[in-house]
Amino acid sequence: MIDVSLQLSVSDKRRRFDLDIAFATDAPFVALYGPSGAGKSLTLQAMAGLLPVRAGHVKLNGRALLDTAANIDLPPEARRVGYLFQHYALFPHLSVRDNVAFGLTSWRKRLKADDATRVDELIESFGLTAMARSRPATLSGGQQQRVALARALACNPQVLLLDEPFAALHTTLRRQLRAELRDLRQRLGIPAVIVSHDPEDVIALADEVFLLDGGGVQSSLKADDPGLRAALEAAP
């Protein structure tokens, strides 16, 4: 089960945004759907431990990653969260293999033997072996996404967070990678949370959808709800 309740604020000199969101679900693939500025990406960042939270909790199958009432706030590296950033955030100066391995190493230590084996297995499973020494700039958009997914999975995560993973891809490739992502999640057997404002992403992937606007959940729908498409198209 994914159980999330978060209260936080972000601001600059001109504006302030308050996130006050709560949802709990046993659905294996969850979508956070809504317009830009609704708080979708902030929710993922807070779940991953990348933002300070004023109050709330994040629990995965009963394991608390964050619980402000109990003074629990695990650092990002201890949360076992796989995170796919919207624009992949690959390091341009690193090879495909080093990008996948990033996070399993430090500047003082070499990759452990078990970790090196896992990295090589991920590279092979994503069809990246031939380009393992290549830099991200030489790869197609689909190949870059596969590198970013392999990197997100290298830490053997308990949940996969996906922030607009298809935003930079053309329509045909989006359809192909949606199918690959759905199959991947099923093979891994871990829950996934996807952020999107594209109804087709949600309909193709999600088992449950939470509609966000103004920093909170407005409503939720199951994948088999006959009014799902209409609700998505009518959302802000």
Rank of each mutant, 00 (worst) to 15 (best):
P191A: 04
E208M: 03
R79F: 08
R108H: 03
I72N: 03
R187Q: 07
A179N: 12
R63Q: 10
Y33V: 12
Q143W: 10
V10N: 03
S9D: 14
L162Y: 02
L84V: 15
A167T: 13
D198Q: 09
R151W: 04
R79P: 13
R108E: 09
L94C: 03
R108K: 10
T43I: 09
G215H: 09
L32C: 02
E180A: 07
Y33G: 11
L177M: 14
L8A: 04
S11Q: 00
L51Q: 12
D98R: 09
A234R: 13
N61K: 02
Q86M: 08
A38Y: 11
A235S: 05
L181V: 11
A230N: 13
E233C: 12
A69H: 06
H93G: 14
D198K: 08
P76R: 05
S219D: 12
L111G: 03
A55M: 05
I123P: 14
A31H: 04
S220K: 10
T68P: 01
D12H: 00
R229M: 09
V209P: 05
D18Y: 04
G215L: 02
Q158D: 14
P35W: 08
S41E: 14
L221P: 05
H170S: 05
N61T: 04
H197E: 15
K109N: 15
N156S: 15
R187A: 03
T172N: 14
L42P: 02
S41Y: 04
L205W: 10
F166S: 08
R187I: 00
A154P: 03
S5D: 15
M47P: 08
L228S: 01
Q218M: 06
A78K: 15
E233G: 07
Q7D: 01
A192W: 03
D73W: 02
L50A: 11
E77P: 08
T105Q: 10
A148Y: 00
L221D: 07
T68Y: 04
A69R: 15
K109D: 15
D225P: 03
I21H: 08
L181T: 06
P199Q: 09
D98E: 13
R174C: 01
P165A: 11
Y33S: 12
L51E: 15
F85H: 09
L111T: 05
A113S: 13
P52G: 09
L111K: 12
G37A: 06
S5N: 14
I194Q: 01
R15A: 00
P92A: 09
A167D: 10
A101P: 06
I190S: 01
L66C: 13
G214V: 01
A78Y: 02
H170V: 03
E180L: 10
E200C: 00
T105R: 15
P226D: 08
V202E: 07
Q144M: 12
I21K: 08
T129M: 09
Q86R: 02
A167L: 14
M1K: 08
R54T: 12
K112P: 03
I194C: 00
D225W: 06
A192Q: 05
A204P: 10
P75L: 12
A48S: 10
A132L: 07
S125G: 05
V193Y: 10
K112D: 15
L90Y: 07
G37N: 08
F17A: 00
Q145S: 12
Q218F: 01
H93I: 10
R15K: 00
P236W: 03
L139N: 08
